[in-house]
Simulated scan of single mutants.
Amino acid sequence: MLVLVVEDDPGIAASLVLGLERAGYQARGVGTGREALAAVPEPDVVLLDLGLPDLDGIEVCRRIRSRSDAAIIVVTARGEEADRVAALDEGADDYLVKPFGLAELLARIRAVLRRVQPSDSELLRHGPLAVDLRTRKVTVDSHEVALTPKEFDILECLAADPGRVVTRQEVLERAWDAHWYGPTKVLDVHIAALRRKLGVPGLVETVYGRGFRLGVPEPGQDPNSGAR
Rank of each mutant, 00 (worst) to 15 (best):
Y25L: 02
R196Q: 13
I109L: 10
L124S: 03
V6K: 08
A92N: 07
E104A: 05
E7C: 12
L20I: 06
D177H: 12
D9A: 12
M1L: 04
P183E: 14
R110P: 01
L214C: 06
A159W: 00
V5W: 08
L172N: 12
Q117F: 01
L198W: 01
G202Q: 10
V207D: 10
T206V: 14
R136P: 02
G79A: 07
D89Q: 14
V45K: 06
L20N: 03
R115H: 09
D94I: 04
P201W: 14
R210K: 15
L20D: 12
A36P: 05
D93H: 15
Y95L: 09
P10V: 11
F152S: 02
G29Q: 04
R28H: 14
H179P: 00
R63E: 15
G226Y: 13
I73D: 09
E205A: 06
A23N: 09
T184A: 13
T148Q: 05
L133K: 15
L105H: 03
I72Q: 08
L102W: 04
A14D: 13
T167R: 13
A193V: 01
L133A: 15
V189G: 01
Y25R: 02
H179M: 05
T184G: 12
I58T: 08
T148P: 01
A103S: 14
R115P: 07
E7I: 07
G127I: 05
G199R: 04
G182A: 07
V116Y: 02
E90D: 04
V145S: 03
E81Y: 11
P99F: 09
K137T: 12
A103G: 12
